[in-house]
Design a protein around this nucleic acid. Sequence first.
DNA 1: GTCTATATAGCGATAGAC
DNA 2: GTCTATCGCTATATAGAC
Lengths: 189, 189
Amino acid sequence: MTNSRRSEDKRSRLVAAATELVQRQGVQRTTLADIADTADVALGNVYYYFKTREDIVHAVIEHHEAEIDALLARLDERKSPKARLKGLAEQWSNSADMVAHDGCPLGGLNYELNKCHDGVTDHAQNLLGKLVAWAESQFRELGLRDPRGLAVHYIAGVEGAALLSNTFGDAPLMKAEVRRLERWIDDLA
Amino acid sequence: MTNSRRSEDKRSRLVAAATELVQRQGVQRTTLADIADTADVALGNVYYYFKTREDIVHAVIEHHEAEIDALLARLDERKSPKARLKGLAEQWSNSADMVAHDGCPLGGLNYELNKCHDGVTDHAQNLLGKLVAWAESQFRELGLRDPRGLAVHYIAGVEGAALLSNTFGDAPLMKAEVRRLERWIDDLA
DNA sequence: GTCTATATAGCGATAGAC
DNA sequence: GTCTATCGCTATATAGAC
């Protein structure tokens, strides 16, 4: 492997470590020493890949953004809008144990970043923003009234359930609420 | 006024300042210096009223808990369970501007405290826990199946909407989702 | 009870050798 | 590119005069 490839490997290891630690501990509680240690990179070397700590958070957001894009692209292959919408909620159902333990990665990130009003916040809202916009287009394709309101209701339901599931450490709660939302989708129109 | 009363006054000023700052900035970003300054108390004097920083967070939780108890007691005076339930959601609607700016105080507190697994977390879950338990009893009084599931759906809907409202800085979003949930209540059974 | 001054520790960031 | 050592700052918490 070339040097540049090995460098990219270290960079991606740092982003992966940061993403995992941020989900488990939150942004504020995750230190650069934590990240460097988890990624097996010397602390001082982190600054070769990221100028500031904020840049790492930025990279974590972009990492989530890429995963969302990939997920929505996969869901777009389904035939009906209802199948696509239900496929989205199933993501939280499938990772219910993780959600119960650490919360929804997107929700937690947004809740925390909403508290500091810098440039990172504006970027983070794209995560939930993309989900809402995508869901809105699905509801619109179904010819329903107020597709935006339906999309907000749907994503809010998932995210709120993730909060309760995490707060009570209750994974079945997450699965049950996804089932309820899927029934709601089925009965629409 | 006696000394003990003036002391209680200072203590309550500290709790009030902490509560406000925690809502606006989050637990982690709020320092003791912030709290002391806002409450007009000398930094070193804070430790006369609270042994550790964690004790202040504990007091903030208890402050919210007392407000929840008072709110639910007021709502219990309404005649029908549906009126009581809708009265709860209207709390978020009435404070939509605050929610859009700083998020739901309870949701934000829980999201943040769920990340650290100490004794404070166990106490914080009582906040959302009380809301869910109260809503469950209202749905049960209506004779509906799965009152617990309905309560989770309701509180999750409110909290999820608060997250989206805060993320997008969109107060009307909060109001609109409360209206949708109130219609859902009206159409039940 | 209240205040000032300070001990102590941890974290982001940098310097500089290799 | 990588590492060790360390600076500078901030935050919790304490000491001790008043």
